[in-house]
Design a protein around this nucleic acid. Structure first.
Lengths: 195, 195
DNA sequence: TGTACATCAGTGAACGCGCGTTCACTGATGTAC
DNA sequence: TGTACATCAGTGAACGCGCGTTCACTGATGTAC
């Protein structure tokens, strides 16, 4: 636990945080173990010691990301109780936890079959579906599977476009607000101004 | 125009096609000029000769992609005339022109301000909006801008999730069919079975 | 029909760089006695 | 309280590799005369 000296204390944690920063700066593909080590002020061989190899580091990042997304969606559902809030939470996660989000949906870059990843991802998907289940029956329609897919596509697409800089922010600059208006659109057409 | 010999004929075209293949194989980030040259059976300095540098090649790829997307959306609108068809065309493009699609929405990798790119992108966006304009007034609702955003998010999200392998194809394996059901959901809830 | 010349598409050698991975090592820590 | 030892986190030198870019070049083509 000594923060200085030969032993770091919690280097694994620190490396993950630096990796996240690195992904934020240059995207998942630019990530390099040496850069992460540099950011953490540690020898370049240290990351390999903790994660085996580059793939291992990305796998850890993805697993953490899914776990946190699941937690956030659950919280939104528990606190607010409506699908709209879950949708907004999804977009919020993508925006302020951009790095893990981008890694998570690039399964070719990490071990997507890693048990930790698989479980965390299932939890996140479950929360989203649960959010949808809170909608009144007639708003969801006949095919619940299609509704789930549409809901996921909508929030995921909005988040992706936003992150990709494809959306011009004319006027409203808070993605959460815009996301709410868009998500509301899915189940309640003809809304007035957002919020 | 001689296809053999020192002069290639249309090496620029050939390089773009090889680049697309390379992106299909390994993603945009893996693209390397040397690999593209190798695929085209040409010296590794040749791509630089045509595109200046790596960024130039990706810019050309993106410009072509947006132009083709715009064309496809226009065609779908002209032939079928309904928003649903435009939505399906968007997803189809993403699926069978995966490589350019992935490049297009990673604007940090190329020169997004390139005039050719800007124009082609605007055309594509216009076609999508036009598709939406074909919907009856009461299906679109009060805020057309939000409707456009929702529509784009929906198709883009679906396409992205599909490409990312996030969607388990239980049963229906044609993305177009599923996309149609999902898109229909946006404006016409409570549909029965897809198609 | 033939010759000189300009143009430019494509070559290939060379450069320096950052990377992932390996491996023998060393320093710090905790535990057994 | 002190000593020996096992454990393991982190080091640093070394390797081989593929990359982007540069640059003087060469071969093919078209055009002027």
């Amino acid at each position: 636990m000594a923060s200085r000296g030969y032993h770091h204390g919690d280097l694994r944690r620190a490396l993950l945080e630096c990796a996240e920063q690195a992904v934020s700066d240059g995207g998942p593909a630019q990530l390099s173990l040496r850069d992460v080590a540099r950011r953490a002020g540690v020898s370049h061989a240290a990351p390999a010691h903790h994660f085996g190899d580059k793939r291992g580091l990305l796998t850890a990042l993805a697993a953490e990301g899914f776990a946190q997304l699941a937690r956030r969606l659950e919280e939104a559902l528990a606190e607010r109780g409506a699908f709209l809030d879950v949708a907004v939470a999804y977009v919020d996660f993508a925006v302020d936890r951009r790095a893990p989000f981008e890694v998570m949906f690039r399964p070719d870059m990490y071990d997507a079959l890693d048990p930790t990843v698989v479980q965390a991802r299932a939890e996140a998907a479950g929360s989203l579906a649960l959010g949808l289940a809170s909608m009144p029956e007639d708003a969801v329609g006949a095919d619940r599977r299609v509704a789930e897919l549409a809901a996921w596509s909508l929030v995921h697409g909005f988040a992706t476009l936003w992150l990709g800089g494809a959306l011009t922010t004319d006027g409203r600059d808070d993605p959460g607000d815009t996301a709410r208006a868009v998500a509301r659109y899915l189940f309640d057409k003809g809304v007035g101004p957002a919020r």
